[in-house]
């Protein structure tokens, strides 16, 4: 059974359709990269998977169960999310990481917090540091540790490296890869960087104007020779940006 299955999902906002009949499935332990141009519906799709946007009933399933029938706070613990721009809350790194469990009346021990920091490749010495003093890359790894505190089955990543420099991008990618190896975590990773999709994705889904244009194994699909014309145009449009920012830049 797929971890997440989307069946014929459409979404309208302000009278305008942002997703058109999207269907896909995500398997256990898989990293699915969702790529496409800005405004193509990538973030809207991701937000439907944890009900930050409301999908119609019987369109999104978590392990076979319609997500609109799962209590929403439970769903969001099972399907964690890391945003493009990390919102760092007031207080220490430890307090930030413990936010999710605390919202449900649970306390995390310092050992548990330290373990989560290690999983997210965050230096243990930072545990009592005011979270707002962290660098951009550290903030993103804090966001990962914070999401992991809820013990999610799926991690949604909404362009987590797009605001980072190439070095910080590599660190975040490495920590997420390591997470996948250690925990077998399923990830849906939105990116607009083709090179990143090639580096970290098992499969790639190309979304344009709210429609699934193509989906397939990362290497095969991103092979320029066989690519769909729209995907090819998207990839070619990225070339100058990639050359300027260097590999791994989002």
């Amino acid at each position: 059974m797929s971890v997440i299955e989307v069946r014929d999902l459409s979404l309208a906002r302000g009278g305008e359709r942002v997703l058109h009949h999207v269907s896909l499935s995500i398997e256990e332990g898989e990293v699915l990269m969702v790529i496409g141009p800005s405004g193509g519906g990538k973030s809207s799709l991701l937000r439907c998977l944890n009900r930050l946007e409301e999908p119609a009933p019987d369109t999104v399933f978590l392990r076979g169960q319609d997500i609109t029938t799962i209590p929403v706070t439970t769903l969001r613990c099972r399907v964690g999310m890391v945003f493009q721009k990390t919102a760092v809350f007031g207080g220490t790194v430890a307090e930030n990481i413990a936010y999710g469990p605390r919202a449900r009346g649970k306390t995390l021990s310092r050992d548990e917090i330290a373990r989560l920091m290690k999983l997210a490749a965050l230096d243990a010495d930072l545990i009592d540091r005011p979270a707002r003093e962290l660098s951009g890359g550290q903030e993103q790894r804090l966001a990962v540790a914070r999401a992991l505190a809820n013990q999610p089955e799926v991690l949604l990543l909404d362009e987590p490296t797009s605001a980072l420099d190439p070095v910080a991008t590599k660190h975040v990618e490495a920590s997420l890869q390591s997470l996948r190896e250690q925990l077998g975590l399923t990830m849906v990773w939105v990116s607009h960087a083709v090179e990143q999709a090639r580096r970290v994705g098992d499969r790639v889904l190309f979304l344009d104007e709210g429609r699934v244009v193509s989906v397939g194994a990362a290497q095969a699909m991103l092979d320029a020779e066989s690519a769909d014309p729209r995907l090819k145009a998207f990839m070619e449009g990225q070339e100058p940006a990639r050359a300027k920012a260097g590999p791994g830049a989002a």
């Binding site: 944890n50 964690g80 999310m81 945003f83 721009k85």
Partner: peptide, 18 residues
């Protein structure tokens, strides 16, 4: 103005009130 912070908390399982 602080939509990102509020939605991050929602995504961590907080209720709207929290």
């Amino acid at each position: 103005a602080q939509r990102n912070e509020v939605e991050t908390k929602l995504a961590l399982g907080a209720t709207g009130r929290q």
